[in-house]
Nucleic acid binder design. Structure first.
Lengths: 238, 238
DNA sequence: CCGCTTCCGTTCGATATCGTACAATAAGTC
DNA sequence: GACTTATTGTACGATATCGAACGGAAGCGG
C-alpha cells in the first residue's frame, strides 16, 4: 500500500495540481519506474514511446549537433514532464532526454497520454503551463549561450542543478559539465577552481558541493534569475 | 470585399489549417493590422494584450539580458503566431517580439484568444503543433549559439530569414545582424565579406541579397537543416 | 549641392576559449 | 597491494572574438 499511497499523492507537481477526478483517471495507467543515472528516456529523432512525470531526480534535454556533439538545452525535474513534445502533438523530438540526477518517475505510454489529453480535463492546461516554463528556460539559455562567458554559465548551470536535486552535493564530473555547456573540459576545470577559490563551491573527484549559494549567484549571470522566476510562476499560481 | 476575401482565405497557415467552422468563429474577432518594420508587438515582462496571426513579414522573438543586451531566439512568419505564450496559459513573456521584415497580420485580443481556445475546437491542437516547432527552433538555436562560430551562425540566420521573407533581398544592417546573433558589429562585417567572396550573397548598404542558397547552406551549420525540417513537419501533415 | 547621419571597412591590442597533450592523482578491480 | 581506468591539473600555442576607435562612403534632408 505504500506504493499506492505514493501514487495517490505523487511528488510530481503537474500531477499534484490536477483535480482529483483527472488524477484518478490517470492513476491506473501510470507505472512507477526508476531513473538511474544516465538512463536515456528518449532519443533524438526516434518516436517518443513514453512520457515521464518525474517524481525525483533531474533529466537533461539535450540537442544534438553534427559529429555527435551534444549541448544541454533544458533541465526537467519533479515540476515537469519528460517527453512533453507529445503534449504538443509531436511523435518525436529533435532532442534526447537523459537522466542527470537519479530518481524515479511515473511513466505513461505516449498513446495513453494522447488519450488522456483528448478526454478534455484539466490535464492539458496544466501541461501547457509547464511547456511555457520550458520555453522560457530554453530561450534564456539560448541567449545566455550567445553572450555569456564560461564562468557565468557554469555558475548558472550549478544553480539550476542545485534547485532541482535536493542535495548540496551533485555527482558530476568536469567532463560532464563541459558536455552540458558545450565547452572544453579543461575550461571547466579552471572555472570550477575559480568558483572554489571564491568560496562558492567545493569539489572532489566526480562531485561538486554547493557551499554558498549567494556567492554562486554573484558569479552567475542574471539568466539564472529569469529561469528561476519562470519556475516559480509555474509552481505558484493556481 | 477584397479585404473580406483576404480574411476568408488568410495567408496565415495556422488559420488555413482550421476547419471552416473554427475559422468562422474566429473571423469576426480578427482585425487586420500592418506590421511596419521595427514595430514592437509585445514587450518583455509586460502583459501580452494581443496575439498576431502573421500574414506576411517576419517577427523576431528576442530575449533580454542585463544591460539591455538583446539576442534573437526565434523567428515567426506566416506559419505562426506572435504571442503564443498566451496559448500556453501565460499572460506575459520574458521575450519581446519585433517586426523584422514588414508585412501584415490578423490580430486578436489575448482575451478573445483564451475564449476561443476554451471553446474546444481544432484551434488548440493547431497552435500546439506550432509551439512544438518553435520549441525545436529555440533548442537548436541554443545549441548552435553554444558551439558554432560566427560565420556558420550568420549563414544560418540568413537562410532562416530567406525562407521567411519571400524575397532574395533583405533589408538588414550589419549592426542589426550583430544584435540578433549577439556578436560584435565588425565581426558581422567580416563574415558578410567572407560570404560575399564565396559567392553566396551580395550586399550593399542596409541590404543583403541571397545569390546562391547552395553556397549559403554550405557555409551554414546543420542547425539550419534541423530547423527547416521542423518547419516542414509543421506545414506538411494534416 | 552641402552637410549630417548612418552604415560599413578596417585597424589595434586584449582576452577568452580552443584543441591537444601529458602527467598526477583518485578510485575501483582482481 | 598491484593494476587499471577515470578524473583532474596544467601547460602550450593557435584561433576566434572582443571592445574600441577612426575614416570613408552612401544616402538623406535641406
Amino acid at each position: 500500500m505504500a506504493l499506492l499511497e505514493g501514487i495517490r499523492l505523487p511528488e510530481n507537481r503537474l500531477l499534484r495540481s490536477l483535480p482529483p477526478e483527472d488524477l484518478e483517471a490517470l492513476l491506473p495507467r501510470l507505472v512507477a519506474v526508476d531513473l538511474p543515472l544516465r538512463m536515456l528516456l528518449h532519443e533524438a529523432g526516434e518516436p517518443i514511446t513514453h512520457v515521464y512525470f518525474v517524481q525525483e531526480g533531474v533529466v537533461s534535454q539535450i540537442a544534438q549537433l553534427e559529429d555527435g556533439q551534444e549541448v544541454e538545452v533544458g533541465l526537467i525535474d519533479r515540476t515537469g514532464l519528460v517527453g512533453y513534445a507529445v503534449a504538443l502533438g509531436g511523435r518525436t523530438s529533435t532532442t534526447e532526454a537523459v537522466v542527470q540526477g537519479q530518481g524515479h518517475a511515473l511513466r505513461l505510454t505516449a498513446d495513453a497520454m494522447r488519450a488522456e489529453m483528448a478526454r478534455g480535463g484539466a490535464l492539458v492546461a496544466v501541461l501547457l503551463r509547464f511547456v511555457l516554463s520550458m520555453n522560457t528556460q530554453m530561450s534564456q539559455v539560448a541567449a545566455c549561450n550567445a553572450r555569456h562567458g564560461l564562468g557565468e554559465r557554469l555558475a548558472r548551470w550549478l544553480l539550476m542543478m542545485h534547485d532541482r536535486v535536493r542535495s548540496d552535493q551533485m555527482p558530476v564530473t568536469h567532463e560532464f559539465m563541459a558536455l552540458m555547456l558545450g565547452v572544453r573540459r579543461s575550461g571547466v576545470t579552471l572555472a570550477v577552481g575559480a568558483l572554489e577559490r571564491a568560496g562558492a563551491i567545493a569539489h572532489s573527484r566526480g562531485s561538486v558541493t554547493v557551499l554558498d549559494r549567494g556567492r554562486l549567484e554573484a558569479a552567475s549571470c542574471d539568466c539564472y534569475a529569469v529561469i528561476r522566476r519562470a519556475d516559480e510562476e509555474l509552481a505558484g499560481p493556481a
